[in-house]
Nucleic acid binder design. Structure first.
Lengths: 182, 182
DNA sequence: GACAAATATATCAGAATGATACATATTTAA
DNA sequence: TTAAATATGTATCATTCTGATATATTTGTC
């Protein structure tokens, strides 16, 4: 059945936390969820309409002064759909790292090129780690909120993996240096 | 320009190692590259035809007894295209973990559900680690081969990250246990 | 008051997925 | 020996998603 549709569950999940607009959902995907999931307007808005047709969300027009604004809320049926999906095992966990791809074919690019890719990656990881550590500190003050508990677990995942990435960067650079000397 | 096309570079990269069939390329994606990149027949075969039209690969019909078989080789022009891409910085490194998604929305599923997802993830990671460690051991014996050097670096990346994942699983399960007691 | 940035909805071409169809070759096991 | 199962191999398709862009209003800044 092709790239099995996931966006509907993502949006239902976001709406299970609180009602919001499509724009706000995109923002969440770009900030909170961005370390493990993504999404674009091209799938958000059509999916939102589909979910309304199916009775899983309700629209509420909050426009003022001609400024369009539609707030979405999850229905009981939507919550059931979400819960059902949450109970099922995850189907696919996937990494898609262009850096690794370029490194794997590195023979055509040489050691110098490989090191550049690694260093660029290293810098990106350090920046992400700063953000994630800030997230973690903030969340730790509000762990009484159940929703935040789960958020915190995913942030910890991010921190652990980016730390491992940085270790690997160091190791890989050293390894290449050794190979260069020979 | 939409989801900028990557498959052509992936196939050129594989062919830069040695000539092979489309079927063989799919196998590489499912084994060697699977820890950081994927691909399906639906993009492999059309891309291969496109690459031939552009003069970046050449086809050679190796059929025997009516059994279809097309071996592809990279051309000089194809190698240049690949090298040019390899020199450019990686555009996107992306994680897409359904497990993390289900965990993030875990409030609708409860602690028990969260633990189940983590445990399933943990088992998958342990299995992957076994495979990766075998890869690493084999590769270490053949590091005089330049291509293997780069392969080895990506395997080390996989090992480091899966080890970090396992640490996180342990930590997350303990954290949930604490929350359950309260 | 001008200008940039943020808020907000919407669409589209292009790309990739996952499945399946089809056919032959090789291995396994009864 | 031969039947079944698995591996090799090419190819296509509906569905899904991405990245970009269009459009318009509001808010903040200098």
């Amino acid at each position: 059945m092709a790239n099995t549709k996931k966006m509907d569950y993502v949006l239902l999940g976001l709406l299970s936390h609180e009602p919001m607009t499509g724009y706000e959902m995109k923002k969440r995907l770009d900030t909170t969820l961005r370390f493990f999931w993504g999404g674009s307007y091209g799938s958000i808005y059509p999916t939102l309409n589909q979910l309304e047709t199916e009775g899983k969300v309700t629209k509420e027009d909050t426009s003022c002064n001609g400024r369009e604004k539609i707030s979405y809320s999850i229905t009981e049926y939507g919550k059931e759909t979400l819960k059902e999906w949450l109970r099922k095992p995850a189907e696919k966990d996937e990494l898609r790292y262009e850096t690794l791809l370029k490194l794997f074919f590195g023979n055509e690019n040489g050691f110098e090129g490989a090191k550049e890719h690694i260093e660029r990656f290293e810098e990106k990881c350090m920046n992400e780690l700063v953000v994630l550590n800030m997230f973690a500190e903030n969340l730790m003050q509000h762990l009484e909120n159940d929703t935040h508990k789960y958020y915190y677990l995913t942030v910890r995942f991010g921190i652990k993996t980016y730390e491992a990435y940085l270790e690997w960067c160091k190791e890989a650079k050293e390894q290449i240096k050794k190979w260069e000397k020979k």
